[in-house]
Design a protein around this nucleic acid. Structure first.
Lengths: 352, 352
DNA sequence: CTGTTAGCGCGTTCAG
DNA sequence: CTGAACGCGCTAACAG
């Protein structure tokens, strides 16, 4: 069998509880005793049994992360992968392990959140999915487990009392569109997507920008893809005339934007000279394509940092109020595809 | 406090151990009793406490996956991400949770393998890293924890007795090069990478194919990149004459291959008419680039399946012999960049 | 088939 | 400051 505190105790000539206290930096131990115990434990490569520890303390030092199923689909996984990477980096600093699971086991159908929480496999939850059903939200509140809904924002009576950290997609939509307007574009095609709320918000921001600058919203300039590269590509090929009739496109995911760009290039249109393109997400991948994509940066670093910070405060009971909703602002990353580097003077608000 | 088996016992009017047995499908329980217990547990959404369970059984139902640090670097993460996805899918079927960690905590410097094993946070380990040091290997053998080294092959006295599942990179290198030879190419530039053993193996396969077909190996036709898209791109730009002097390039990662293709296109060379390109990995991403990349498929599905299968057998004690080394064969995926679809007749072995 | 009892390894009173 | 004793919630003999 493996080493236990009892073994260490015997070797150090002290009691088991003294070992426990030494290993947990209890102030109730003399430096000398602690030193002796630690040295012995160190020498033997001793580590406390996490199960026993968890059983006594009700703490596991692991965080559950719930990710949407479509994270496994390559095309939509890039931004989410990037977000997960951020979470990993931060939680590693706190020495917390990560269990990533999907809403439910696709084979057994078992609800992962309930399972992880009720079995006490995790101390807290970071939930990244577009929609969490009411039953689950009530469950989270009832159990009072530290938890934050990340990235996707959800609003209903059921989400009251649940912490949320999410990006302002309306602002992102506004930002991307406004940038194109300021570059002088008036007919701006919008390639959005269906399914998630966030795309509706981006469209909303797009419309708000148009309105702000006195441009009438034309429903004919609104297209929806399915978030894949291919759909971006196909959209261009299937709506040649439409794309020919505009001077700019605002695409609501980078992957689709890259598909749009490739299709436009294949059709002989120069970017940004003939048509400007702005994307959304700022995935690392876009660095591989020419011209470099101007895009709305999803603030994953800040999203992850704030969510984790929040979670740590809940875990340490430094924070007791629940239900805070923190909106993070995206930013615009100007590169080449919008043509901003070509125009000497930007159109300013006052000129419009 | 949360529900316990004792609570369920009280409600069902049976003893705590009867509850435990019912919940664990023990054959020692009458259908009637079990039914009653299960119904009550179900109604209350009861779940067994994983810590208590782990403490008694020494089983946690979670698997540790050790990933290399550079998994966080976007350019090299694509294939590894794809492999991890496969692992996730398979382990989900077994209802096992996954803790993914890096060799060591980059902040505290603590060795993850030792920590996870000694603390008994995981039942088994899947280790994906190019080099596992001798001390760790000895540790793994000493503790006798079910474990398999995945993807990266390592050979030394220390790895004896350690199970390994890996791809045959020599065969992959051979496959890619042979394909080009059969298409009639004689001067085949090889763009490989430094650092990992697997690239040396791919180079080895490349050379073996040349030899097999009576083509002298020319060291001038061997270049090394750093596995990034940019390095593929730069290599072309920095060695224009060299690339102009060959009719084919065999690039040892898809990402670099895409960089090479983009650079070649930028220089006005047609692929595959002027120059054929073959990659290695078969990452989903390459579907975004034209022409579609012919490449050596890393058999991640099989690697993951075999590794997990193996692990399950070790966990269930169905397998007792340790130290098996399973080599998985890669395959060639012929698409457009090699030009195979253009030639009516392949050159056959007998013609050479 | 079921109940009783004893740990699993640790944290934590409570005495001293 | 340290040790003895108990309990966390569950599994696993051991009786019956």
């Amino acid at each position: 069998m493996a080493l236990t505190t009892k073994d260490i105790a015997r070797l150090a000539g002290v009691s088991q509880s003294t070992v426990s206290r030494s290993l947990n930096n209890s102030p109730l131990i003399s430096d000398e005793t602690r030193g002796r115990v630690l040295r012995i434990a160190e020498e033997l490569g001793f580590e406390l049994n996490a199960n026993a520890r968890g059983l006594s303390t009700n703490r596991t030092n692991t965080i559950g992360v719930i990710y949407p199923d479509d994270y496994l689909d390559h095309d939509v996984s890039l931004y989410l992968g990037s977000l997960l990477t951020q979470l990993r980096k931060i939680l590693e600093q706190w020495d917390l392990d990560l269990i990533v699971a999907f809403k439910e086991n696709r084979k057994t159908g078992v609800d992962s959140i309930k399972r992880l929480v009720m079995r006490k496999k995790v101390d807290a939850l970071i939930i990244v999915q577009s929609h969490t059903d009411e039953r689950t939200l009530e469950f989270l509140k009832k159990t009072n487990i530290p938890c934050v809904l990340l990235h996707f924002y959800q609003s209903s009576k059921a989400t009251e009392g649940i912490d949320q950290v999410y990006a302002d997609h309306v602002a992102g939509g506004y930002l991307g569109c406004e940038h194109l307007i300021k570059l002088g574009h008036r007919r701006i095609l919008c390639v959005s997507a269906e399914g998630e709320e966030e795309y509706e918000q981006r469209r909303c921001g797009y419309r708000a920008a148009l309105e702000r600058y006195g441009i009438a919203y034309d429903p004919a300039l609104m297209l929806n893809g399915d978030r894949t590269f291919q759909s971006g590509y196909d959209l261009v090929m299937d709506h040649e005339a439409l794309f020919d009739s505009v001077t700019a496109v605002f695409v609501h995911t980078d992957i689709m934007a890259l598909g749009v760009m490739e299709a436009l290039k294949a059709r002989g249109r120069r970017i940004p000279e003939d048509i400007a393109v702005v994307g959304y997400d700022d995935v690392e991948l876009s660095a591989y394509f020419q011209p470099h994509l101007t895009t709305v940066h999803q603030p994953r670093e800040e999203l992850a940092a704030v969510a984790c910070q929040h979670l740590m405060e809940l875990l340490s009971s430094k924070r007791t109020v629940r239900g805070e909703q923190i909106k993070i602002q995206p930013s615009l990353v100007v590169r080449q595809s919008c043509g901003a580097h070509l125009v000497s003077t930007m159109v300013h608000d006052t000129d419009l």
